[in-house]
């Protein structure tokens, strides 16, 4: 299977099943879609009016050589392999600790509804947090590196417990030959020098929530009484990013129908001095005024194109940034098994509520149909866990023939469930945007390879 497209002046050909990426001239670009269904003579006949015969023959030979070498028209022979891979025993690798089901902001698009996840306000106790870390250690098998994300709500509303749990983790990792990688997400309201110093010592990554331009951020991320949060958080985030040497963090925003020109927000964050940036599409019920619509896609595609071209320009000028959704590794990256088997939610990754209940991931918290167990008794819903384990690319009809499947792994189970009532469908708007981002990310690689 081959996916070919034009972007920013480049003719790009992705050989989907091998991962090979080719930048081609117009002749090769026109030969490739004919190659499998036409003979060489037929191709010469069809393209002879447009290109010199010798050039077509040269192009044909190059396409033929790449096909023989397994870099064009590679077949998908992975389905049986992935099915057997997914039958293997899995261990728990990562927990998302909902350290606080409470928040000091009232972001309008928050899936947690002011941090409360459709339930009551609550803070995780030290005892529950310790039981969660014990559960992770006990269910991680021989795996040494374990990930724990402090999430909310707003985790800094329960910072004392965060500190105690990190100390407990450091103590336990020595006893059990484990290595905890702690991460933290914050809206910045309670961020101060003490938190920064602690995070710089203990947190492998921090995610700092901000949407971009002041008017964009403050429209969607107000305090409960309505005031905006931008002026309070920006100087603190700038100081925090600098204190981390401009690495191991993301400023992370959400764009909505109110800022379809979101590339301006990405560049605004870059111009504030941030170098690690993610601005991501909102996922919302269609009836919400700020929800993205099918009709918005052409404008959003144009924004991604515009952003990609600008990031190439800035990279060449020596002031590049890292945009999370354009990160792609064409040389390395994970193996086929990982690429096709999904994110790990429900099996390798679990979310823990303040009272110790387990859910497949943070997006499912509060939906009792997805309650999987708790940290003291472990996983009870084995059948549900099996559904998540089998939720790979080949379980999703829309993904089986998609060119992007090796880069998106079938998308987000929670988004699929929220839009279609099934974890084996896909969220269609998100899917379209993901495909566009992959095209842009590959184009950036092509543009920078020109140098």
């Amino acid at each position: 299977m081959v996916h070919q497209y034009k972007n920013n002046g480049f003719n790009i050909v992705l050989d989907v099943n091998s991962g090979a990426v080719h930048v081609v001239d117009d002749i090769a670009y026109d030969i490739i879609p004919l190659f499998e269904s036409c003979s060489k003579e037929e191709i010469l006949g069809r393209l002879g009016q447009t290109y010199p015969q010798g050039e077509i023959e040269e192009g044909y030979s190059e396409v033929e050589a790449l096909a023989k070498d397994g870099q064009l028209f590679t077949e998908d022979g992975y389905e049986a392999y992935i099915s057997s891979f997914q039958e293997r025993p899995t261990v728990v690798k990562a927990l998302c600790l909902h350290i606080a089901h409470d928040c000091n902001l009232a972001c309008r698009y928050c899936f947690a509804e002011e941090g409360e996840y459709h339930g009551r306000r609550a803070l995780m106790s030290v005892e529950t947090g310790k039981a969660a870390l014990d559960f992770l250690i006990a269910n991680s098998g021989n795996r040494r590196n374990l990930e724990v994300d402090f999430f909310g709500g707003e985790p800094l509303m329960n910072f004392g417990v965060v500190k105690e749990l990190v100390a407990y983790g450091r103590e336990q990792e020595k006893l059990h030959n484990k290595n905890f990688r702690f991460t933290l997400t914050t809206n910045g309201v309670l961020l101060d020098d003490e938190v920064m110093e602690f995070a710089n010592r203990e947190m492998a990554n921090v995610v700092l929530s901000i949407d971009g331009r002041k008017e964009v951020n403050d429209k969607m991320r107000p305090f409960r009484k309505g005031a905006g949060s931008y002026d309070l958080i920006v100087p603190k985030f700038q100081k925090f990013a600098e204190s981390r040497g401009q690495e191991n963090y993301y400023v992370r925003g959400t764009y909505t129908r109110y800022n379809l020109d979101f590339s301006e927000d990405v560049l605004h964050l870059a111009d504030l001095g941030f170098t690690q940036i993610s601005v991501e599409p909102v996922v919302a019920k269609p009836e919400e005024e700020y929800a993205l619509r099918e009709e918005d896609l052409p404008q959003l595609f144009a924004e991604y194109d515009k952003l990609a071209a600008e990031l190439v320009k800035r990279e060449k000028e020596g002031r590049g940034i890292n945009f999370f959704h354009f990160m792609i590794d064409l040389e390395g990256g994970p193996c086929v098994a990982k690429r096709l088997s999904g994110c790990g939610s429900g099996t390798e990754y679990l979310a823990v509520t303040p009272w110790g209940d387990l859910y497949p991931c943070h997006q499912f918290v509060g939906d009792e149909a997805f309650l999987m167990g708790n940290v003291t008794e472990g996983i009870q819903a084995k059948g549900l866990q099996g559904e998540f384990k089998r939720c790979n690319v080949y379980a999703k009809e829309k993904c089986r023939e998609c060119f992007a499947r090796f880069y998106c792994s079938g998308g987000c189970a929670a988004n699929s469930y929220n839009f279609h009532g099934s974890i084996t469908d896909v969220y269609d708007i998100g899917c379209q945007l993901q495909k566009k981002r992959i095209e842009c990310a590959i184009m950036i690689k092509a543009a920078l390879a020109e140098e």
């Binding site: 099943n17 090979a20 090769a28 390879a449």
Partner: peptide, 27 residues
Amino acid sequence: MKHIKTLNTKKLQNTVKKGGTSCTVGQ
């Protein structure tokens, strides 16, 4: 090659024998 420039030498099929959490996969 004159008409085609290949950006990478990766072959995913080679990771089947050698290979085998992320909310990125593209890790």
